[in-house]
Design a protein around this nucleic acid. Structure first.
Lengths: 166, 166
DNA sequence: GTCATACTGAAAATGAATTTCATTTTCAAC
DNA sequence: GTTGAAAATGAAATTCATTTTCAGTATGAC
C-alpha cells in the first residue's frame, strides 16, 4: 500500500518543521485557540511522513511518541491543519478520508491502483487552467478541483498474470 | 439543489427506455439473476429523472409508484445498473453516493457549488486524453477518472452579496 | 497565582452503506 | 400448469468511519 510521493525533499528540514509549527501557532492565536503539546506532537508526526495518511494511520504513528494522545485529538488537529493550509484532504474514493502535506508543495494529482490501493502523484498544469476556463464559462467562482485517475498498476498486472498461468 | 444536465433530450423516448430495459434484462440473464417487477420499476423511475440521485432520493421516487419497494432493493438495483453500464456513481464529496444515467451519454464532468449543492455538467476531451497520457507514463492500465470543480455559483454569490448589504 | 476558557480523550452518537435472514417470487424442468 | 431449487425481497440489524458529548485537565491572559 505504497503512496509514492514524487517531489520535494525526502525529509523536511528542521527549518521547515519550525516554519510549519509557526503557521499552526499563529492560526491558533488568530482563532482564539490554545497551543498544546499534543497538537505540536501531531503536527511533527504528520510532517515526518511522506504518505497520504488516514486519521487512524496518523493516530497510530502519534501513539508511538505519546501513547496518551487519543484518536479524537488527532482527528481534530487534522482539521486544524487543513484550516491553516498545512494539510489537505485527498479523497481516494474508498470511503476513507486521507490527508497529505500541503505546505510548500507543488499542485499535483493522484493516480490510484484499484487493486492494491497504492498511488502515484503526477503534475499537470492543464487541469488548473481548465478549472479557470470552465469557471469563467459558467460564472462560478472556483475554489478547487479534484482530479484522480483510477487503474491497475504494473505490479498488480504482473501478479495477476503470474497467478493466472499457475 | 438543482443538478443541471446540459445535454441529450429532456425525456428519454419510449424506445430508449425499452433499450435500457433490454440491457438490464440481458445483464441479469448473463450473471444468472432474475427479472423482477421491482427491478423494472426502479430502472424506469431512474430513467425518468434527469438528476443525480442518491439511493435515498431514488427510493422516495420509487415509492410513489410502488410503496412496497424497500430501500434495500433500490440500493441493490443501483449496483446492478452500474454493473451493466446504465448508471454510474458520481461522488460530489459530501459523503453521499449519487448515481446518474450513463447509457448513451457523452463523457462529461461536474462543477459543484459548495454553498447550495447545485451542479452543472461540462465537457472536456482534454481530461480523457490526460488520463491516457499519464497512464502510459507510469505504466498504469487506466480504467476511469474523476474530475470535479468546486466553487460558488452565480446565484449564491448574488444572494450572499444581497444579505451583506442589508 | 487565579480563573475563565479551551483542551483532552473515552465513550457514545451519528449516519450512510452493507449484510442478515425469514419469507416470497421467479423460472426452468417436468 | 405444477414443482422446487435458486434468487429476490425488505425490515431490521450491523458495520464502520466520522463526529459529538461530557467530565476532568491544561493553558495563558491578567
Amino acid at each position: 500500500m505504497l503512496q509514492k510521493r514524487i517531489d520535494d525533499q525526502p525529509t523536511l528540514s528542521r527549518q521547515m518543521v519550525r516554519e510549519a509549527q509557526d503557521i499552526l501557532h499563529r492560526h491558533l492565536k488568530d482563532v482564539g485557540l490554545k497551543q498544546t503539546a499534543q497538537r505540536d506532537t501531531i503536527l511533527r508526526t504528520f510532517l515526518e511522513t511522506r504518505d497520504h495518511l488516514s486519521t487512524d494511520e496518523l493516530h497510530r504513528l502519534v501513539q508511538r511518541k505519546d501513547a496518551g494522545i487519543g484518536y479524537t485529538t488527532v482527528y481534530r488537529t487534522l482539521k486544524l491543519l487543513a484550516e491553516c493550509g498545512l494539510a489537505s484532504e485527498v479523497a481516494f474514493h474508498d470511503g476513507i478520508a486521507r490527508y497529505e502535506h500541503q505546505y510548500n508543495r507543488r499542485s499535483h494529482h493522484h493516480m490510484v491502483c484499484t487493486s492494491c490501493g497504492s498511488s502515484v502523484e503526477f503534475f499537470s498544469q492543464e487541469v488548473g487552467q481548465l478549472e479557470q476556463e470552465i469557471g469563467r464559462k459558467y460564472h462560478y467562482l472556483t475554489t478547487r478541483h479534484t482530479f484522480q485517475i483510477y487503474g491497475i498498476c504494473e505490479d498488480c498486472r504482473k501478479k495477476n498474470q503470474a497467478s493466472r498461468t499457475i
